[in-house]
Amino acid sequence: MYGGMLTVAHTPDSDDAFMFYGIAVGAIEIEGFRGVKHIIEDIETLNRWLVEEGRNVDASAVSAHAYAYLINRYFLLRTGASMGEGYGPVVVARKDGLRLEGSRIALPGRYTTAGLLLTIALKGKFTPVYARFDEIPGLVEEGKVDAGLLIHEEQIAYSRRGLTVVLDLWDWWARATGGLPMPLGVDVFSKRLGRSAAAKFRDALRRSIEYAYQHFDEALEYSMRYSRVKDRELVARFIRMYVNERTLDMGEDGVEAHRTLYKLAREAGVLKVSVQLGDEDIV
């Protein structure tokens, strides 16, 4: 049952802002709903809200890792996913050659997919230090941690701080999966509102992304308000990396990538729940 205002939570990041541009400015309407109430919080806050606190929002951005704990309550949308292909989160340090096993590594949250991938890759043989994603480069610079795992715009802005990549998670993922796209962030929709409503939201989000690309300069200006990085060219590059054809529809190999993520995490003993992602869970 639906028909009122739709509560949508997403992050204050340039790629999410770009995706929702058409909806946010009123150019794209969501069939069956009178309007949208936006809740904007960083990704780990949204993850914790839904996973730990059991909050009910109608639609939300979450990490693919967090979705493992939400599958009974939320549909996974084929539209809105952030996936890496040829690139992904990176671990940086102040110098080359750092041995990551046994190191103190800053992670951008307990439920982030990047953190899950790193834990699998290193078999958990490091000490995690949880911090907001935008604080991590500073922690590395100041020597408060040995290394830091970077997501969002920071993963392509680190060189300006004199930091160096000691592990590119894409390289590990590509070897582990034979080159599947790397799942990172997803958009989900509450199952209590039903599959039909989820499909209407998915279609509106797809049109919103298409609208943003049709009005790229205006959408980029809007997105810049939310970016911690104020370099216009860098933000545009980041948006193109993570808002692309995969974001319009992750494809069957994108769905398989999510299943593979949960399988690898379960086999590594990192994921404590068994995730059976069926077609009935995907819209």
Rank of each mutant, 00 (worst) to 15 (best):
V25C: 14
V186M: 11
D146V: 04
V273R: 13
R206W: 00
L220G: 15
L100G: 10
A268K: 15
Y130E: 00
L122A: 09
Y74L: 08
G115Q: 07
M1Q: 13
I71K: 14
V275K: 13
H38D: 11
E233D: 15
F133I: 01
I43Y: 01
R73M: 04
W173G: 13
R110D: 08
G124L: 05
R240D: 02
R259L: 06
A199E: 02
R104G: 01
H215K: 10
A106I: 00
T113K: 07
Y130A: 00
V243H: 05
W170F: 09
M224Q: 08
A106L: 02
I43R: 08
V92G: 10
T113E: 10
E31H: 01
Y262C: 03
E218K: 13
S227H: 02
T164D: 02
G22M: 00
T112I: 01
H258C: 09
L264C: 11
I239R: 02
A257T: 09
E31T: 03
D253L: 03
L180S: 07
L100E: 07
I156Q: 07
R160A: 12
E31D: 13
L184C: 03
R225G: 07
R259N: 14
G102R: 05
S82F: 12
Y67M: 03
T45R: 15
R225W: 12
W170H: 14
V91K: 06
V8M: 14
L150N: 06
S60N: 11
A61E: 15
D96C: 10
F238C: 01
I39A: 04
L163C: 04
G254M: 00
V90A: 00
G54Y: 07
T7P: 00
L117D: 01
E218Q: 12
L277I: 07
A121W: 04
E233H: 08
V165K: 06
I43F: 11
T113Q: 06
S190D: 14
I151T: 11
T45I: 11
P12S: 12
G88R: 04
T112P: 08
K125N: 14
G22Q: 08
R228N: 15
G86Q: 12
D249P: 11
S208Y: 03
I136G: 14
G22K: 05
G178I: 02
L77Y: 11
T177Y: 07
D249I: 04
V25W: 01
D279T: 00
S14F: 02
R192I: 10
R161D: 05
Y69L: 10
L163M: 01
N72L: 03
Y111C: 11
V229A: 09
D187A: 11
I156C: 03
R206A: 06
R161L: 08
A265D: 14
D281A: 02
D146K: 06
E53Y: 12
P12A: 08
D249K: 05
E142P: 02
V51S: 14
F238A: 07
A147K: 01
G278S: 12
G138V: 00
F201S: 14
Y213T: 07
L150M: 06
W173I: 06
L167E: 12
V57M: 15
G148F: 04
L50F: 04
V243K: 10
